[in-house]
Design a protein around this nucleic acid. Structure first.
Length: 116
DNA sequence: ACAATGACATAAG
DNA sequence: GCTTATGCCATTG
């Protein structure tokens, strides 16, 4: 456990119900843009006692990138759908609809995300 | 301190 | 648009 990891957990725990964020965004919010892998590594070692909404984090494509070791993508999808997150054909999530970067902070010069 | 690993992201083909 | 290759950062052995 490191300060970074704790920061990641803190950020993930702030993701609103029914919304999702990306590893890259979380990394950027943690103050280390360009370290999305570290975010994944951190989320892969979430302590059992923590009630972290890890399922609200997906990759930049709006797809699920979970580790089949602990759980399957199917589980995460179910959890998200249960929160009202709609999956487009192909299992992608519309960032414009459910994406969350920070406290109401809208996307401005982020990647396209307009693929819908 | 070095090398290897991993829930990513981006650029090319 | 999708698949493949390369780069990045932090964590772990």
């Amino acid at each position: 456990m490191t300060p970074f990891t704790r920061r990641i957990y803190a950020l993930v725990s702030t993701i609103p119900y029914g919304q999702v964020s990306s590893y890259g965004e979380v990394a950027a919010m943690a103050g280390r843009p360009g370290a999305p892998r570290a975010v994944g590594s951190a989320l892969a070692r979430i302590p059992d006692d923590l009630d972290l909404p890890w399922w609200r984090v997906v990759n930049s494509s709006g797809k699920i990138s979970t580790s089949p070791i602990h759980h399957t993508a199917q589980i995460q999808r179910a959890l998200l759908e249960d929160e009202g997150v709609h999956f487009s054909t192909g299992g992608r999530i519309d960032w414009d609809l459910f994406g969350w970067t920070a406290d109401g902070r809208s996307l401005e010069s982020e990647p396209d995300w307009s693929t819908a």
